[in-house]
Write a protein that binds this DNA or RNA. Structure first.
Length: 166
DNA sequence: TCCGGAAATC
DNA sequence: GATTTCCGGA
């Protein structure tokens, strides 16, 4: 007996997701079939839950700061994460430790004062997966919270297959 | 609840 | 390298 957590793949991935009016390019969390073939990373997973309404009672975006989210049900998030990684003993204490390691990596930041509230540092996240972006060029619209200004032209829609234009 | 060191694990 | 596990401390 293992833990029936092998499957649960997400093959069909659109070019971008819209969350609360904000666009999420797929390259921001491409976990599957990546050149390095690594395992799913926690922040990828968090983003996954965040993009599905079915988990709104477990984890959801917060109004106000762009990228800020609240874990409404820590135990459930830990269970889901544990299932994905085949770690039945996972709990929020351990998961949050992993989250804390993101502080130095500048992927995540804690919103002090607010319980179970963290904030993504998308400027970092995007550069991590999209190093081609020039730091000196105008700030990506999706980082500013002005989703309506989202420019599809800036995102290579066929980037999943890596070998495309560019 | 949250933090971060240390060691272990994959 | 990215967690997972354990834990003393604030």
């Amino acid at each position: 007996m293992h833990c029936g957590c092998v499957s649960e793949g997400m093959p069909s991935v659109p070019n971008s997701y819209w969350i609360s009016g904000l666009a999420f390019p797929d390259w921001a969390y491409k976990a599957e079939s990546s050149p390095g073939s690594r395992q799913i990373q926690l922040w990828h997973f968090i983003l996954e839950l965040l993009q599905k309404e079915e988990f709104r009672h477990v984890i959801a975006w917060q109004h106000g700061e762009y990228g800020e989210f609240v874990i409404k049900d820590p135990d459930e998030v830990a269970r889901l994460w544990g299932r994905r990684k085949c770690k039945p003993q996972m709990n929020y204490d351990k998961l949050s430790r992993a989250l804390r390691y993101y502080y130095n990596k500048r992927i995540l930041h804690k919103t002090k004062g607010k319980r179970f509230t963290y904030k993504f540092n998308f400027s970092k996240l995007i550069f991590v997966n999209y190093p081609l972006w020039d730091v000196r060029s105008p700030p990506p619209p999706l980082l500013m919270g002005a989703a309506n200004m989202y420019q599809p032209a800036m995102i290579p829609t066929g980037m999943q297959s890596e070998v495309t234009a560019q």
